[in-house]
Amino acid sequence: GVRVRALYDYDGQEQDELSFKAGDELTKLGEEDEQGWCRGRLDSGQLGLYPANYVEAI
């Protein structure tokens, strides 16, 4: 996976979405899909989806 850092807070709206705060680091686990979602893993171990444009590569 690729380490990325959140640029903005994001509150997951669905069960399969991650929630994070600006500045949090997570691991991107795949390329974004056509809707702009990426699969990732928080350092807590939680897996889920997040909007790709909310993070930057570290």
Score class of each variant (00 low, 15 high):
L29V: 14
P51R: 14
G23L: 04
F20D: 01
A52F: 08
G23Y: 06
K21C: 14
C38I: 06
Q15A: 10
Q13G: 09
L42A: 10
L42V: 07
D24W: 07
R5D: 01
R3S: 03
V55H: 01
E34G: 15
D11G: 03
I58A: 14
E25P: 04
C38W: 02
E32Y: 06
D24E: 15
L29R: 01
G45A: 03
G36N: 05
D16M: 07
V4A: 03
W37M: 10
R41Y: 06
G40V: 01
E14H: 15
G48Q: 00
V4H: 04
I58G: 10
A52K: 12
D43R: 08
S44H: 05
V4C: 03
Y10E: 02
P51H: 07
G45D: 06
D33T: 10
K21D: 07
E32C: 15
L7F: 03
G48D: 00
D16F: 13
G48N: 00
L7N: 06
Y8M: 06
N53E: 03
L7H: 04
D16A: 09
V2I: 15
L18D: 03
G23Q: 04
L47Y: 14
T27V: 11
Y54F: 07
A57N: 01
Y8W: 07
L7D: 03
R5L: 09
R41S: 12
D43V: 11
E31H: 08
G30V: 09
V2P: 04
G12T: 07
V2K: 06
N53S: 12
W37G: 03
G48V: 01
K28Q: 10
V4F: 14
G36M: 05
D33Q: 09
E56I: 06
L29A: 05
L49Y: 10
D24I: 05
A22G: 07
G12Y: 01
Q46C: 12
K28G: 06
Y10C: 05
L26F: 15
E56H: 10
G36C: 02
Y50C: 08
K28W: 08
E17A: 11
F20M: 04
A6R: 00
L26A: 00
K21Y: 04
G40T: 00
G40K: 00
R41D: 00
V4L: 06
N53V: 06
K21E: 08
E31K: 11
R3C: 03
E25W: 14
D11R: 06
